[in-house]
Write a protein that binds this DNA or RNA. Sequence first.
DNA 1: CTTTCTACCTATTGACAAAGTAGGTAAATG
DNA 2: CATTTACCTACTTTGTCAATAGGTAGAAAG
Lengths: 136, 136
Amino acid sequence: MIVSTKGRYALRVMVGLAQREDAYVPLKEIAEAEGISQKYLESIMTVLSKAGFVDAVHGKGGGYRLNRSPSQYTIGSILKLTEGSLAAVSCTSQGPAACSRSTCCQTKPMWDRLDKMIDDFFEGITVEDLLKEGKQ
Amino acid sequence: MIVSTKGRYALRVMVGLAQREDAYVPLKEIAEAEGISQKYLESIMTVLSKAGFVDAVHGKGGGYRLNRSPSQYTIGSILKLTEGSLAAVSCTSQGPAACSRSTCCQTKPMWDRLDKMIDDFFEGITVEDLLKEGKQ
DNA sequence: CTTTCTACCTATTGACAAAGTAGGTAAATG
DNA sequence: CATTTACCTACTTTGTCAATAGGTAGAAAG
């Protein structure tokens, strides 16, 4: 599984917020609309908020909303934020966790190409694209 | 992580066996060459053997070898066998585990396209391709 | 026919992360 | 001040991956 529920929920929430345009939507409402546990969703919204992907306002009439146009959010940026990484295998990671055989491994170049392909895929889609897709 | 060590080890073993051509290579030798635990590798070789991907011969002079030309093995076929599935997300699975929102989910079409892209990628590469890649 | 080499089989363990839960604190509004 | 909301820290549960342990059975050589 390359993308866990965390990233998938985040995407659905972002598309949902895009549909609501400039309104502030409380967490409770998002959770119910998407069928996600409120408590679990909290941890996801915190990440989105801290990274500046959404505005958050306390108190009555508050909640979350996007702070840019849906076309300004790539799917890749949202997934990298919530998942940490989109690597299909651990082989391609750098630093201390790097594979000791990476210099001679005959499969490594393939993993690099796969990573590149997946990254291009997600960076080439925006929240706006998903919005439109649903309306067809 | 879309591909675990099981699948990655299996690929490396298949490429390794391809290099040895028609010789029977004992598990112990493969494990040492690839730096994989013998016992763990056993479970992988059993899968490859039962699926008819390799020939296995007992006793002295025995071991494992490929039973087709390296060009006859797609990477996709090996990974699907050892990993069970190459799905990037659980959303795209059919049957009882299917997502209840799949019919209305605005992200689902994207996951379907991703799965297709990944499948095409792996089905378009063979063990022979990886062999050549290492020699460049 | 016995020893050695090899594959094959079943079960168990440890580590880790994902997914979800619980209970409280702080800010904004009316 | 009361209500609504976001924010924070910690915990539990679950499941899978990765690896380990200890055997059985087949094939070949001496």
